[in-house]
């Protein structure tokens, strides 16, 4: 007697939990042969709202963690991902990826996490500055996280695109609401399970699946989102989302990029999601000695 395979329910990841979508709607992901693989949540704007509330709640504590500890946690995600590599590759193979492409996708994803893990306690020293001013002030600029970031993960990259946009955001102390790839959401949800097992506090990363045309405008117009990141979307879609983002003047970044390339990682991806705080601190002129700052 042949065994009936138990199919996994792919739920969304909000506030460190795996609820079903509030809308109660699903769509079916099929393999390249047309066989149903999984039901994936079709999220609604209410899921977006709940995810933003969770992300906002988690943001303060995440930003206040020691930078070194954030690095440890990002590294831990990479470790856990390494341990579950085969599951991710299997998902990609069933969707029609070649063994080589699937392998590369996951390997690069792990490496990218390690890369940004390293930056956590280093970017601030490099991006910050002490500024020359012509008054008796010690003037310095440092980075602070922007807050809650909305992310549209690259549609054509099941995991690497998602991680490449997500890692620099959380490395810099932001929390995120991610709209996963529409065509390849399985890796995104499985990745949420990895996050869940990697000491990432609930709410720091929230992952939603479903149709971008339904969720993205809500996320872009949400007044409690501080910046918005998208990659490789159409020019028209990008323009309409930027219009949505106008009301609270969110920063909007649209990267047109191949995430497999070496130059698709870098300090500027962290810096894009940082606010610069400049402090003017009065200094005393003592005994005629001047300060060079």
């Amino acid at each position: 007697m042949s065994r009936i395979e138990v199919l996994k329910t792919y739920k969304v990841y909000i506030g460190g939990q795996f609820p079903r979508t509030e809308s109660g709607r699903y769509h079916t992901i099929t393999s390249k042969k047309g066989e149903p693989l999984a039901n994936v949540c079709l999220c609604s704007r209410k899921d977006v709202r709940n995810a933003v509330v969770a992300a906002r709640k988690a943001q303060g504590a995440w930003a206040e963690r020691a930078a070194f500890n954030r690095g440890q946690i990002l590294y831990r995600i990479a470790e856990m991902l390494e341990g579950r590599k085969s599951q991710f590759i299997e998902e990609l193979l069933s969707l029609g990826f070649t063994q080589k492409n699937a392998q590369t996708e996951i390997d690069l994803s792990i490496e990218r996490l390690v890369y940004y893990a390293g930056w956590c306690d280093k970017y601030n020293q490099i991006v910050s500055s002490v500024n020359p001013v012509s008054s008796a002030h010690f003037n310095f600029s440092t980075c602070e996280p922007m807050g809650v970031i909305g992310i549209i993960a690259d549609n054509n990259s099941p995991l690497l695109g998602l991680i490449s946009s997500l890692a620099p955001a959380i490395a810099g102390g932001n929390t995120v609401v991610v709209l996963s790839s529409v065509d390849y959401p399985l890796n995104a949800v499985t990745f949420a399970e990895v996050l869940h097992a990697s000491d990432v506090p609930g709410g720091v990363v929230n992952i939603l699946t479903g149709s971008l045309h339904e969720t993205a405008p809500t996320l872009a117009s949400h007044m409690d989102i501080n910046a918005f990141v998208a990659s490789n979307i159409s020019h028209e879609f990008s323009t309409s989302l930027q219009l949505n983002a106008v009301d609270n003047l969110k920063r909007f970044f649209h990267y047109t990029i191949d995430w497999n390339q070496q130059n698709s990682q870098g300090l500027h991806f962290i810096g894009d999601l940082q606010e610069v705080k400049t402090t003017w601190h009065p200094i005393e002129q003592i005994g005629g000695a001047t300060s060079s700052y």
């Binding site: 977006v48 709202r49 933003v52 809500t218 117009s221 949400h222 007044m223 409690d224 009301d247």
Partner: peptide, 10 residues
């Protein structure tokens, strides 16, 4: 009134 989700910042 606005159609957008609000933020406590305001």
């Amino acid at each position: 009134e606005s159609g957008y989700y609000a933020s406590p910042d305001y």
